[in-house]
Amino acid sequence: MSTTQLRLSAAQLQLAGQQVNLPELSLGCGEILAVIGPSGCGKSSWLRWLLGDQQSHMQVNGRIELSGTDISTWPIEQRGIGIVWQDFLLVPHLSVQENLRLALPKALRSQSRQAQQQVIFERLQQVELGDLAQQPVTALSGGQRARIALLRALINEPRLVLLDEPFAALDSQLRQRIRQWTFATLAQTATSAIIVSHDSADFPAGCSQLHWPQGANYD
């Protein structure tokens, strides 16, 4: 758990007349970085920059190094970074199983449908959601959606997964359970993760934390 998985140079974010200076950051394999700060100050945009999603309203100077390679200019699909959105964004007209099938890693996509189904079913079983496979995602409860969304990101075997306020849409009771489940699952798969939240209760004990710096006007 010690090799460095992600290394970020010091970076400058410019958005909406604000400039945010971020320090140099690094993250080991299987480690979790918690980013905390109030809503609406650029955390989510920064996550999307990490993901490789160009956004016309924000500019970032900085370097991203993943597993020792500079990926700053790579397109999203080559980075191997997964994401779980606050609103999960499961593809609404598909079933749970079909949503997961879309996320299978490249090696599995050429396999037979049966082999794929086998993998998906096993993964669902591991997290005790096997009976949901055929359900349309619109029929899922909030907690179920949250878990399927994480599972979908993880089934792709990313080198890093980004979680953007992943528990914000859940009520407080459920929140606690899903939180535990999420960190357990991340630990189980030894996936590095960055989790962004405005609520420090969302972070597991002992993870490294970054308090999002105050922006400065630069106009």
């Binding site: 490789g52 397109p75 999203i76 699909e77 959105w85 792709n156």
Partner: peptide, 22 residues
């Protein structure tokens, strides 16, 4: 919601493949 595409891209699909899928 264009993030559907972004999500698909994060799974390793190219832009237009993601477009087609979602």
């Amino acid at each position: 919601e264009q993030r559907y595409l972004t999500t698909m891209q994060s799974f390793g699909y190219g832009f237009w493949r993601s477009w087609w899928l979602t």
